[in-house]
Amino acid sequence: MSSLELQVIFHPDLSPGYNMAVDWWLFNRVSRPTIRFYGWSRPALSIGYSQQYRVPDKLNQLIDKFPVVIRPTGGGWLLHAGDLTFSLIVPVGHRLFDQTIRGFYRLIRERLEKLLGIDSQQPVEQDFTGAGLVSDCLGTCGVHEPSINGKKWLVSAQLRNSRAVIQQISLFLDSRAWPQTTGISKPFFLDQLDSRLLKANLRAAIIRDFQNNIFGQTSTHIRQFTAVEWKQIARSVSCFRLDCLQDLPKFSPRSDGRLEI
């Protein structure tokens, strides 16, 4: 594989724990710029890394309804239902690695707005809210998380260290998949837009656009995990599941030996 290729990963829908374990594996192992598309085998809640230490009240009410998974990235909790989820992984050495945190968010927002032809409202940077540990991703206003009619259509979160950056991204595509009785604030679903790109074409369009305009790679390479790699990934799945809210801590990149994959 050439260093100029963008590594692309698709696979069938996975359980919530597996989805995070795959991203964690890629964050720790990948040496090429990578984009990974993934789906959820059932609706699930993902919570920001530190929310495992202070479980939001609202989440306690939802824990019986949906499986909960800990994201390695930050941010508030988010219901995954009818969203297109994908991750960008950039290893050190790639020019994008030097992009600032906010610069990363801005790049992604600008490309997706252009691709989808969306003229969305830009969030106003809020003063310190103190709500970070208990917040709902869709109910708070983040930098470079645009909205339409006050509702977000794009949510993303980031983890970075000295070796790599990973950005986990959700685009809301299918409003029929959103549970009706949860009381969770509903995002703006892109199926409300008359976009020729939606659904089948969107994933391919994102790859093409991000390859050229974000990663600056000349071609793509479809990457599949080997059986050995799936076994390595499987080892950390349980670390990301929040099965029991009292059983803390669950996951720590600094200290959890189980995650040294």
């Binding site: 920001g48 890394y49 945190i101």
Partner: peptide
């Protein structure tokens, strides 16, 4: 919104994680 600090006496190599910080959008 959150920080994980090392323990006194811990040896940190260059490039190793010293602290883990979570802000509203990035860890």
């Amino acid at each position: 919104v959150y920080i994980e600090l090392p323990e006194p006496g811990e040896q940190i190599a260059a490039g190793d994680t010293l602290v883990l910080i979570e802000s509203l959008k990035a860890t």
